[in-house]
Computed example of a mutant assay.
Amino acid sequence: MPGFPSSARNASHWLPRSRRSPGEARRCLERLLGEVVGGERFIDTGLLLVSELVTNAVVHGSSRDNRVLLELSADPVRLRIEVHDALADRAPVLRATDRDEESGRGLLLVKSLSEKWGCCPRGGIGKVVWCEIGPALDCPEGVV
């Protein structure tokens, strides 16, 4: 029925190699989750993880002339985020960071907040870094 969210949605978006791309990726995710039954339960973790994956692809996984592809898939029980880039020889690396470092924690966040995550070759050229999350648990009444 028009005006009612459906149970599952997919979206694809090409993003430039730009510091603005993580923000555009967040807006794409917000639009998608607005069309999914229960999509609001993915929003907080999803926004953080899409930002981290797109930032990594823009900074480490693409050359100046390449774009990255954001693929999103959501239904009431799962959100999958995929970021495709053109550099297959640069697999993401989990690394320990010093508490005072300002960067380097992105993949640690992805690992700790997602149910599954990984990296695989992309058909043709490049790689795909992906993660899947479940919905946040609903808060009991009166708890904020």
Rank of each mutant, 00 (worst) to 15 (best):
A57H: 09
L47A: 09
V68A: 14
L53R: 03
N66I: 06
L33Q: 02
R19Q: 06
V59K: 08
L69P: 08
S73H: 14
H60W: 10
R27Y: 11
R90W: 07
L70V: 13
N56T: 14
R41Y: 06
R41A: 04
V58M: 03
R17A: 05
R67P: 14
W14R: 05
E40W: 05
R64E: 13
P16K: 14
S63N: 07
G23Y: 13
S51G: 14
A25H: 01
V37F: 12
P16Q: 15
A86P: 01
R90G: 02
W14T: 13
V54Q: 03
T45Q: 10
V54L: 11
L79G: 06
A11N: 03
D75W: 03
S18I: 06
C28F: 12
R31W: 13
S63E: 15
R67L: 15
H84Y: 11
D89L: 10
L32Y: 05
D89C: 11
D85R: 04
C28R: 09
L15D: 04
V68G: 00
V59S: 10
V77Q: 05
R27L: 14
I81R: 01
R78Y: 14
A74M: 12
S51Q: 11
L72A: 02
D44E: 06
N66E: 12
R80T: 08
S51D: 14
S21A: 15
G23E: 07
D65Q: 07
A25M: 10
T55F: 15
L49D: 01
R19E: 07
E35T: 10
R90L: 05
S7D: 12
A86E: 02
S62E: 10
L15G: 00
R20M: 15
R90I: 03
A88R: 13
H60V: 10
R20P: 09
L53W: 09
V77Y: 13
H60G: 08
H13F: 02
F42N: 02
F42I: 06
L69R: 13
N56W: 11
R9P: 00
R26Q: 10
V50E: 15
L69N: 12
H13P: 00
E30A: 15
S21I: 07
V58K: 01
V68M: 11
A88Y: 02
S63G: 04
R17N: 14
R17K: 04
S63M: 14
L49P: 00
R27M: 06
V68E: 04
E52P: 07
V54D: 02
G61C: 14
R78N: 09
L33S: 01
N66R: 07
S63A: 12
A11R: 04
L48T: 12
H84N: 08
A88P: 03
V36F: 04
W14N: 10
A91S: 11
S6E: 13
E24Q: 12
E24P: 01
S18N: 12
A74L: 11
R64M: 04
V54Y: 01
V36S: 03
P76Y: 04
L87H: 06
S7Y: 08
V68T: 06
R9F: 13
L29P: 00
H60A: 09
A86W: 05
V36D: 01
D65A: 10
L87V: 04
A11E: 06
A8S: 14
H13M: 11
